[in-house]
């Protein structure tokens, strides 16, 4: 399980505008068209959803379905916002995702650094154990974890949600690889000779060098919690404690008929997700590709 340092690390993944352009050719045009069509196809479901959110109840039931609302209305949005605590659910999700991110970044940075730079056999055994948990899907131990949350009386709360998402085995692995590749032992030894203590070395030297990797991990962790479903579904049983995913899912089983409102609620959820992704895209892409590079 060694990570091959790849060029992804050194080359920007998302093409830079300054990259050299190939001369125009018919083949390029065809490829662009194919790719463009494919992209439209990928986005189409989401565009449908947004379009439905603006349709009148009559138009939603019309056949054949219309792609662009004839007579756009916003009453679906106002109805959803006044009848469901949608904003509260979005807030719950954001808070949960933020706290989870903080925990995961903290534990992964410390753990990754220790495992990378303190080569003791006992530590290596612990590392293997941590790594093994990364392979086990969450769904497998979700039910016992639920009973732990129950004993701690933290069901229906952010803390209950957080219990399942405090650590990430893969995060420790990611940071360990990063430390090994980017922080030379000599740098740390030099600091030790200068009399710096271990804590100072970690905080003042290692952490700043890890900013990039930690940012990528942070975005990964944030979206992992933001899109979590099964765990929030069992931990939250009161309306106030739902995350946005759960709130929406229960909303749809409770009010199946009102497609317009469902679409409006979904649109309200989609927008912050896509915007956040747009802002953090680069970090996100880096984090995701890093997951793929363990060979």
């Amino acid at each position: 399980m060694t990570v091959v340092p790849t060029e992804a690390e050194t080359r920007p993944l998302v093409a830079e505008p300054s990259a050299p352009r190939r001369p125009f050719s018919a083949l390029n045009l065809v490829i662009d068209i194919v790719l463009l069509l494919f992209c439209v196809l990928m986005l189409l479901p989401l565009l449908f959803l947004i379009s439905n959110a603006f349709k009148t109840p009559q138009e939603i039931l019309a056949w054949p379905p219309t792609l662009i609302p004839h007579d756009p209305i916003v009453s679906n949005f106002t109805a959803v916002l006044t009848t469901t605590p949608l904003l509260r659910w979005i807030g719950n999700s954001a808070l949960f995702a933020t706290l989870s991110t903080i925990c995961i970044v903290a534990t992964s940075s410390v753990g990754g650094y220790i495992f990378a730079k303190f080569k003791f056999r006992s530590l290596h055994a612990i590392f293997i154990l941590f790594l093994a948990t990364a392979i086990v899907p969450f769904e497998i131990y979700m039910i016992p974890l639920y009973f732990q949350a129950q004993q701690l009386h933290i069901l229906n709360s952010i803390w209950g949600l957080l219990l399942g998402y405090m650590v990430m085995g893969f995060g420790i692995f990611l940071i360990r690889q990063n430390v090994e590749q980017t922080i030379p032992d000599e740098l740390l030894d030099a600091a030790r000779i200068d009399g710096a203590n271990e804590l100072a070395i970690f905080v003042l030297i290692v952490l700043p060098l890890l900013r990039g990797a930690l940012a990528a991990l942070a975005v990964l962790a944030f979206f992992q919690a933001w899109t979590a479903f099964a765990w929030p579904l069992i931990v939250g049983t009161t309306k106030d404690s739902y995350t946005i995913e759960v709130g929406l899912a229960l909303f749809q089983t409770g009010f199946t008929i009102d497609l317009g409102r469902l679409s409006a609620a979904s649109t309200i959820v989609l927008v912050p997700s896509v915007v956040l992704f747009a802002i953090l895209r680069r970090n996100f892409v880096r984090g995701i590709t890093a997951t793929g590079l363990k060979e």
Partner: peptide, 17 residues
């Protein structure tokens, strides 16, 4: 980026679509 958007959107609204 476009092909990647479905991977990051929350599942429930996407499934609704």
């Amino acid at each position: 980026t476009t092909t990647f958007i479905p991977y990051i959107v929350p599942l429930v609204p996407a499934a609704m679509a």
